[in-house]
Design a protein around this nucleic acid. Sequence first.
DNA 1: ATCTTAAATTGACATAGATCAATAATATCG
DNA 2: CGATATTATTGATCTATGTCAATTTAAGAT
Lengths: 255, 255
Amino acid sequence: MHNKNVVPFITEKSDCGSDHPVCQACEVRACGMCSELNTDTLQELRKITRTKEYKAGEQIFCDEEPTENYATIKSGIVKLSKILPDGRQQTIGLGFPPDFIGRAFKDKNSSFASALTDVTVCTFPRELFNDYLKSTPSLEHKLFELTLNELDSAREWMLMLGRMTALEKVAALLLDFSDRLHKARLLQGLDSEKNNFELLLTRAEISDFLGLTIETVSRQFSTLKQKNLIAIKNQRFIDILDRPALDILAGHENY
Amino acid sequence: MHNKNVVPFITEKSDCGSDHPVCQACEVRACGMCSELNTDTLQELRKITRTKEYKAGEQIFCDEEPTENYATIKSGIVKLSKILPDGRQQTIGLGFPPDFIGRAFKDKNSSFASALTDVTVCTFPRELFNDYLKSTPSLEHKLFELTLNELDSAREWMLMLGRMTALEKVAALLLDFSDRLHKARLLQGLDSEKNNFELLLTRAEISDFLGLTIETVSRQFSTLKQKNLIAIKNQRFIDILDRPALDILAGHENY
DNA sequence: ATCTTAAATTGACATAGATCAATAATATCG
DNA sequence: CGATATTATTGATCTATGTCAATTTAAGAT
């Protein structure tokens, strides 16, 4: 029944019965950074963590600010972006549970983080966490793997930004978003239909991600509807009608 | 005398007098991955390494191939790129000494690597190196830091690809390339003038990097010459005449 | 030197996507 | 429920960059 790519959260959680209550209830105990820690070590780390909530739209941290906290995303979606001095903006990544946010080993962030939906995170003070990381190889290893995944996806998006047409970009975004949302929902123990999801980004947010304008994004949606590749209800609820065709548009090779 | 950002190579090397001869002579002994290893541990790692050389243009590894080896760049410049099924290509990064190439913990590369100049690398068999990494936290830590730097620069380029004009992209590339080349040359113990360098990339390679065409890149060079921001000798030798102006074009904020 | 080949520049034109403006759909608030 | 504000769509242009083609420059071979 379980999707092979998804950590079977419910089952694993039961092994953590002696965790601190906050960790026991944590949505990402079994798949996030902490999954590498046993109850004792986690107890230790728990001393420096704090749960924080952000409403959709709120800023989590800022480019120029010194990093005070790192965080693990427990629920919701976080947007990472950069801006040019004249205000032009580019989204450089989306964070889903159980992603880590912040720049390890540096005292300055190199991007803005804001809450795309309502977000719950578990925060760690920077200095303490860096020390902790250096003395806990298993934790550092896990974080390294999360970082490698982020690098992979950043490079994937570079190909998209540099070489895809507007239509292809939108197709690629829809597929990527649907997959990640699907995984995140299964993680929460929710039912999830892969081809049917709520697009949580506004057209403006999508255009910041794809390096396009709002109008161009909107036109591509219309084209995809016309071609019967997707259907849209209320401008926010997407139905993927022809995934193979979208895959081809998005350049997902199928030999 | 030393640039603050550059590891004082000569001085440090003298501390490694009992290294294996190959490591002793290594250009990146003091600043690469191995800088975290003492002579004994390095002796151990040395058993699985092999030096390889590639001529400019040669392929180092391929997207679909299973990764057999990882490598550290000892000298030369490596180009990392991705291609879409229909052949469109995007360069996703340049590797300078002492960068690591390959995807740790995965058995498949997600990009092509080829030699931009003549290149010397030190290779490690994949499986052995992954094992070694897991049991040597200091090595993994260093590699993690190198990876974080790569992620930072990938995101920097995402902003460029998505939101900069052709002229701005070329300015940003020239500045980035001049800095990295400068550092690499100092590392080699060579004299280096920051504002005066050989552009080792062809117009085609530049256009693959910037998500543009050859012709557009060429036109931007002409514009920069006209504005007296740069001078070009023999199409390959760049003189930066007005760095502050280029910095502004490239969006490097100067408060 | 001269010939050959590859790379870079420049020009003329086409086009994808941007910009500006009007309308429509949806959400919010009293 | 209607009034207002926000977000999305659609249409009519405009423009930066792509495309195609001709010329120039440089590099290598003989």
